[in-house]
Computed example of a mutant assay.
Amino acid sequence: MALATLKMVTLDSTDSRRDAAFWSAVLGWEVAAVEDEYAMLSGPGGLALGLGTLADHEPPGWPNEHGSKQFHFDLAVDDLDAAASAIVGLGATLADEQPGETWRVLLDPSGHPFCLTLAGNWG
């Protein structure tokens, strides 16, 4: 039996409006609230993604040489290169350091690393 249910993940941001538009386009989730200081996306099953603007936000490091990356998203896609290209077109950056051929590491507009993996690998 679960002790808790995950309902929302909140990321620090340099611009919550920009990052809400970015993540909404990537995930296909609705922007439920947006203002300069905070934005929230509504996802399936009541899951939400929050984005809080911090003036002194420093993006996590990639690669994780200094222990600053605390977590990242793994996103399942059908075609790694096509998805990476489309998401870069939305404002992401392809990370210089790519640790393998079966996924792509990208950085969102505020510098958070996330991975694209093949959907077929998830069963």
Rank of each mutant, 00 (worst) to 15 (best):
G123C: 05
L94C: 10
D15V: 01
L106C: 09
R18W: 01
V26E: 02
R18P: 03
A32C: 04
R18Q: 07
E58T: 14
K69L: 06
L75D: 03
A33I: 07
K7L: 05
A76N: 12
K7E: 10
G67R: 05
R104H: 08
H72R: 06
P63I: 09
D79G: 10
S68C: 09
G111E: 00
D96V: 13
D15G: 02
D19P: 00
W23G: 01
G52D: 07
D12C: 06
D56N: 11
G67I: 03
M8S: 00
T5I: 05
E101N: 10
N121Y: 12
A92H: 11
S13H: 01
A119F: 11
L75N: 13
P59C: 06
I87P: 04
W103F: 11
S13I: 00
P59M: 09
L6Q: 07
P63W: 08
E101P: 15
A86G: 07
L41A: 07
L90A: 15
L41Q: 04
G89V: 10
R104K: 15
A84F: 09
G120C: 10
S13G: 03
A84D: 10
T117Y: 12
G43M: 01
A83D: 13
S13D: 01
T102N: 06
W23E: 02
V88H: 11
D78F: 13
P59G: 02
L94W: 04
S24W: 00
P59W: 00
D56L: 08
P113T: 04
L54P: 05
V34T: 14
F71K: 00
G45E: 12
V26W: 01
A20P: 08
A20Q: 07
L107F: 08
L118I: 03
G45F: 03
R104I: 14
Q70P: 11
Y38F: 15
S85Q: 13
V34W: 03
R17S: 15
A55Q: 05
L41H: 01
S85T: 13
D15M: 01
M40Q: 14
R18V: 01
S16V: 00
L75P: 13
L107R: 03
N121A: 14
T102S: 06
S85K: 07
E65V: 09
W122R: 12
D74F: 09
L106T: 02
S110Q: 00
P63Y: 03
T102D: 14
D108K: 04
D78V: 10
V31L: 04
L106F: 02
P99L: 12
V9T: 11
C115F: 04
F114Q: 02
S110P: 02
Y38C: 01
D19L: 08
E30R: 09
A32K: 09
L3Y: 05
T102P: 08
A32R: 10
W23N: 02
V77S: 05
P60I: 04
E37M: 07
L49W: 01
G111M: 01
H112N: 06
G89Q: 08
A32D: 07
P60L: 11
F73G: 02
N64G: 09
A25N: 08
D74I: 07
L75V: 11
L11A: 09
T14L: 10
A92P: 13
